[in-house]
Nucleic acid binder design. Structure first.
Length: 586
DNA sequence: GTTAGGG
DNA sequence: CCCTAAC
């Protein structure tokens, strides 16, 4: 990551020599580092990872560094390289020590502040020259992060991705003495963009943060600070810049661009936040105690907090209109807001709370102006449907196939309703609309669902539940099957019916069966109690054949009188063979 | 986990 | 179809 920034020519060269991939900002233009920066010695491994340099390695470059810090030479060894990078770590302070600061954040947790500060951060245009590396950095380091972290990273790290030009900085404390204009210059030099902020304090903090966030690298116990070589432990007292050691690990993870769990990465970010905040204070020419100052600072810190859902919704629009390249990155790389999971394995969508899938407008990988309109009430379900498909079978095609095969092989008659009806219900050969129904069903199967058990097309709801996808009309085949099931197993034994008669209709739950039966009863009784000749075709939705309604009614009557009791109904149902029973009814 | 019933 | 109380 930015670690290289401080590494100067040394690291750069080494990186290039080793042909490090995108994961390292090897192409970053290097600039002269100035005194205030603390360096850490690292070795760049062949794979681009930064490894703490050994003491021996360190000693090799000591002379060079002391000799002329501005002209560090390249120390190269076969198989390994030694570079200098900024020291960002610090003495091991526990998170608990920083807890006070954390509490702090909560006070300013409201989304509006978040938004405002983020906008501030994101709005200014990043110089085109920096875009590549920025993208590079973001893509490589953050794409694997969960979407909600993107924003955080963007806001917190993007700035640091722009290589700071420390030459403008005359030393940390000097910020205090700078005029607004100078601060602007410094800001620009640091972040690669201009700022319109008028708040001197804010600027100073931002600059300080930008600098201090720049580099995080594991290192040996040696640190180079202001041309002096120090033992980490020794300088601990005087070195306020250093941050908690424990964060080193996290930083390392980031640098290595681990794509581990979202949690770990989140943790990293959180740690970063803390570090930043702490460090800011340490840099502190500014009094933290001042409420207004704090509020400013909190904004910047809070910026790092996980955005609230509402915040995301609201910001989405803003971001969408964001003209600068910045907006492009999040949308493209990992859009927390636009989890077009099509390209991404479902597993990357963490199951935890943070992954509420906002929407996946395009299954086909079509790109939609992310986030923008998220449903407040009920999320769309397509998303999870897809996710589920990917999840369970690695592809919907397989599922569909399985469904098809099953259906065709199904001993029952579903496939050919017309035939089935004929053989079952000799009296009603008028099942005209069978074909359309089939088509309908097939269509549904293709688009959203499949008959396999595992892949119920559902979508997470705000409450954490899952909701099934779009309405799935009952086909006549299903209705018939349901009726048969009821007649066989008895009304009320929905789970039984579901399991036995609707095994191939995974998308129909027992509740669905119950509901449908309820509707059937209503339909069968309401229009015309004795309506064999009833013509339901006027209904747009699946017209239920009169024969079926009749049977529904008969079954209802039968069950009504025969069994409030399940066992009784069950016995009744089981007593007769399917066809026999039907024949009797009909 | 199912079922029943309301929404 | 969803939600949820009741079982």
């Amino acid at each position: 990551m930015e670690t290289v920034a401080g590494a100067e020519g040394v690291d750069e060269t080494l990186f290039e020599d080793r042909g490090v991939g995108k994961t390292s900002p090897s192409t970053s233009p290097t600039k002269h580092v100035s005194d205030p920066v603390v360096y850490k010695l690292v070795r760049v491994e062949g794979d681009g990872t930064l490894v703490p340099a050994t003491d021996d390695e360190f000693m090799e470059v000591v002379d060079l560094i002391n000799d002329n810090p501005n002209k560090m030479h390249i120390v190269e060894e076969p198989g390994q390289a030694v570079g200098i990078s900024m020291e960002d770590s610090s003495s091991g302070k526990s998170l608990s020590e920083l807890s006070g600061f954390s509490k702090f954040e909560d006070v300013y947790a409201d989304a509006e502040n978040l938004e405002s500060s983020i906008q501030e951060t994101a709005a200014p245009v990043a110089p085109s020259s920096d875009m590549d590396q920025m993208k590079q950095s973001l893509d490589a380091a953050e794409c694997s992060k969960s979407p909600d972290q993107i924003r955080e990273s963007e806001s917190s790290c993007a700035a640091t991705s722009l290589l700071p030009d420390f030459s403008k900085l005359k030393g940390e404390i000097c910020l205090d003495n700078l005029s607004i204009r100078e601060l602007h210059d410094t800001f620009r030099a640091t972040f690669g963009r201009v700022t319109t902020a008028k708040d001197k304090t804010w600027l100073k903090r931002r600059i300080a943060m930008g600098l201090t966030n720049s580099c995080d690298v594991p290192s040996t116990s040696f640190v180079i600070k202001e041309n002096q070589i120090l033992k980490l432990g020794e300088e601990e007292n005087s070195n306020n810049v250093n941050c908690a050691v424990e964060t080193d690990q996290d930083v390392v993870a980031i640098n290595d661009q681990h794509t581990d769990s979202d949690n770990s990465q989140k943790k990293q970010l959180e740690d970063c936040q803390i570090i930043s905040g702490k460090r800011l204070r340490n840099y502190g020419p500014i009094e933290d105690s001042q409420p207004e100052v704090l509020s400013r600072e909190q904004k910047s810190v809070k910026r790092l907090r996980k955005p609230t859902r509402r915040y995301i919704e609201e910001v989405s629009e803003v971001e969408h209109h964001e003209p600068t390249g910045r907006s492009v990155i999040p949308a493209k790389s990992c859009g927390w807001d636009s989890p077009k999971s099509g390209d991404r394995p479902a597993k990357n969508v963490s199951p935890d709370r943070r992954t509420y899938v906002t929407r996946l407008d395009s299954v086909a990988g079509l790109r939609v102006p992310c986030i923008s309109r998220i449903r407040r009430s009920r999320p769309r379900k397509d998303i999870m449907a897809l996710v589920g498909l990917y999840h369970s079978s690695g592809g919907m095609s397989g599922k569909l196939v399985s469904k098809t095969s099953r259906t065709s092989s199904d001993p029952k008659k579903i496939q050919h309703q017309g035939i089935e009806l004929v053989e079952k219900d000799n009296q009603c050969m008028t099942i005209e609309r069978v074909e359309p129904e089939q088509n309908l069903e097939a269509k549904h199967g293709d688009s959203s669902g499949d008959a396999s058990k595992d892949n119920i097309v559902t979508v997470p709801t705000a409450k954490g539940g899952i909701r099934r996808k779009h309405h799935r009309a009952w086909t006549i085949a299903e209705v018939m099957r349901l009726v048969e099931g009821v007649s066989r197993y008895g009304a009320g034994r929905w789970s039984e019916i579901k399991r036995l008669a609707f095994a191939s209709y995974s998308y129909r739950t027992s509740v669905d069966l119950k509901d449908k039966w309820r509707n059937l009863l209503k339909a069968s009784f309401a229009p015309a109690p004795t309506d064999k000749g009833m013509n339901p075709r006027k209904h747009v939705s699946a017209p239920i054949p009169a024969a079926i309604l009749l049977r529904v009614r008969e079954l209802a009557e039968l069950h009504a009188q025969a069994s409030p009791n399940l066992s009784t109904s069950k016995l009744v149902g089981c007593g007769g063979s399917v066809n026999g029973t039907r024949s009797g009814y009909l």
